[in-house]
């Protein structure tokens, strides 16, 4: 494992910890999209089915379990916690997730490495992860004012993807025969989804002010 991959994973982990801490400390999930969190849960469940039949490393197994558990913990807080669930912007978080799930599934059926249940679900998880942040970005656009923690959460998620891109370039030049087109193309799309957000995040940071999105 190279440094870019490790930094990417750690940034991903940190983004989830930031979100959980925000929810726990402020007892509020205002500005957080439940739809995006549920999509991530679907992504992790469909991708990490291999926990049952393949072992890569202790690091891999532990990280997969952490991602699964934290995804469901966040959803539990937003749906079931008696204080936190009241702060959820249900009326604003109206993105139609089937518009993401169905096309991703159809694409996974059409473009995959192998026509098997686990392989199609794995491919589906790759496609779905690329667009899973969209409900969150739409919610952000609607509520306009972005609180610091939500902003940092999304910034770290975007950074994790950017670090994975660097990791792929590094692996391409250091590992003979290493290529994975499905992952590369979806990962590039996924990183591009964050570009607009990055622009406003950096601009707010440079001007030392709260982040605001244009209408």
């Amino acid at each position: 494992m190279n440094i870019f991959r490790l930094a990417g994973d750690m940034t991903h982990l940190l983004s989830i910890i930031v979100l959980l801490l925000k929810i726990q400390a402020t007892k509020s999930c205002a500005g957080v999209s439940l739809k995006t969190q549920e999509l991530y849960a679907v992504v992790f469940v469909t991708r990490y089915l291999d926990l049952f039949y393949s072992f890569i490393s202790l690091y891999n197994t532990v990280m997969k379990i952490i991602f699964l558990l934290t995804a469901f913990t966040i959803i539990w807080y937003m749906r079931k916690h008696k204080v936190v669930c009241q702060t959820y912007d249900k009326e604003q978080d109206t993105f139609r997730v089937l518009f993401l799930i169905v096309p991703c599934f159809v694409l996974a059926l059409l473009v995959n490495h192998e026509m098997s249940v686990t392989e199609v679900l794995w491919t589906f998880s790759i496609y779905l992860e690329a667009v899973a942040i969209l409900p969150q970005l739409v919610l952000l656009q609607r509520t306009k004012n972005v609180d610091n923690l939500t902003g940092n959460y999304i910034f770290m998620l975007g950074s994790y993807r950017a670090l994975y891109l660097v990791n792929w370039v590094y692996r391409y030049f250091t590992e003979l025969g290493y290529r994975q087109w499905i992952v590369w193309v979806s990962g590039t799309v996924q990183t591009c989804v964050y570009l607009d957000f990055f622009y406003y995040y950096v601009q707010a940071w440079r001007n030392n002010e709260r982040m605001k999105l244009p209408g």
Binding site: R5, D9, H12, D50, S54, I56, S57, N60, M63, K64, F67, H113, E114, E119, W122, Y164, N167, R179, Q180, V183
Partner: peptide
Amino acid sequence: AAGVCAKDEL
């Protein structure tokens, strides 16, 4: 199977 990449990334 051939063509299926090693899934060592998260």
